[in-house]
């Protein structure tokens, strides 16, 4: 087990290194001229050239990559003399449009995104799995048919549409909730909940639909397994058969999907954050596209991809926890 985890962690570190390279190369291939975009209001050819030198864009791609990579560990100074900008380690780049380190910007936005992601994650996972199990147990009955059809509708709704519909009815027409105005929970917990409840529900319903379907098909498959019959033949109560024997066996693909979905959500539910004007990573990403800031986009891409890679590691470890046969592999 320990050897398995060590091997997975080493693979992950290698992947992360590869990831920085890929992201860096991809963004340097873009036609956008960063030196021009970040040179400020009064832009002469000369200032652009100076800016290019300040950003290190005059160096070769490999040197630039090295600068970018080493900045993560030792920081980086843009320019020289009095006008120099110091970005301390770990430096993920500097946003010249916002005059702040990219990491700082991301960390400011991250809590909102984490709250949104975790809240929705708990809701859709619990809801989806419970509904899926229930649906599988009532296979072919009206409960099963209702759940399956509603899940199909939920699965096919686009999030911006669903989000806007919910805002229109709940906030504008019925005025059950005030307009979303995000506050951190430690500042104003009531306001926080009032703002988050709708995006949580919308995300949860969209994702729960998928988990309901996945859990249902997994349960139906495992309920037909021989070891389930053995569990019943032992005289176990049906509840234990379902919980301890069937659900655990059907869990593996659910864990995979859940891990990756959580990682994806942590990278920002871009559209939904915009719909509910939440100050999360998604909003930051959109504003950096509208108001071009490549440093931020590189940073967000890296952070999001890192989440996915870490989630994969966690999923792999969970596999081994769930299924002893994986540990030897």
């Amino acid at each position: 087990m320990a050897a398995y985890i060590i091997r997975r962690v080493l693979i992950m570190l290698l992947l992360l290194l590869l990831l920085t390279l890929i992201v860096f190369v991809l963004f340097s291939l873009l036609p956008a001229d960063v030196a021009r975009l970040t040179c400020g209001k009064i832009c002469t050819d000369q200032t652009i050239e100076l800016n290019r030198i300040r950003l290190g864009l005059d160096k070769s791609v490999f040197e630039q990559y090295w600068l970018f990579l080493s900045a993560l560990f030792v920081g980086r100074t843009y320019g020289i003399g009095d006008g120099a900008i110091v970005c301390e380690a770990p430096c993920l780049g500097w946003s010249f449009t916002k005059s702040e380190p990219v990491l700082e910007l991301i960390l400011q936005r991250l809590p909102t995104t984490i709250f949104l992601a975790l809240g929705a994650f708990v809701l859709f996972l619990v809801g989806g799995v419970l509904l899926g199990v229930y649906s599988a147990l009532k296979r072919g009955g009206w409960q099963d048919r209702t759940i399956t059809s509603v899940a199909l509708i939920g699965y096919s709704l686009p999030s911006f549409f669903f989000g806007l519909v919910v805002i229109y009815f709940v906030i504008i027409r019925w005025q059950v909730l005030p307009f979303p105005q995000y506050e951190h929970p430690w500042d104003d917990p009531v306001q926080f909940l009032q703002t988050m409840i709708l995006p949580w529900l919308v995300l949860a319903i969209l994702y729960a639909a998928f988990y309901t379907r996945l859990t249902r098909s997994q349960m139906l498959e495992t309920l037909g397994e021989d070891y389930i019959r053995t569990a019943r033949a032992k005289g176990l109560p049906e509840r234990t058969v379902i919980r301890k024997h069937a659900l655990r066996a059907g869990l593996t693909p659910i864990v995979t999907a859940a891990g990756l979905d959580l990682a994806g959500l942590l990278g920002g539910a871009i559209i939904l954050e915009a719909v509910f004007s939440l100050p999360g990573l998604g909003g930051l990403a959109i504003s950096s596209v509208v108001n071009p800031d490549q440093a931020i986009l590189v940073g967000i891409t890296l952070v999001t991809a890192t989440f996915i890679i870490v989630a994969n590691l966690i999923v792999d470890i969970l596999y081994a926890v769930i299924d002893p046969r994986v540990r030897v592999a």
Partner: peptide, 19 residues
């Protein structure tokens, strides 16, 4: 089940819970 009457199945690999 399991106390007064018990049963053995054909395929012992699939009949034991792998986890």
């Amino acid at each position: 089940r399991g106390s007064a009457m018990a049963m053995i199945f054909q395929d012992p690999l699939s009949s034991l819970h792998p986890f």
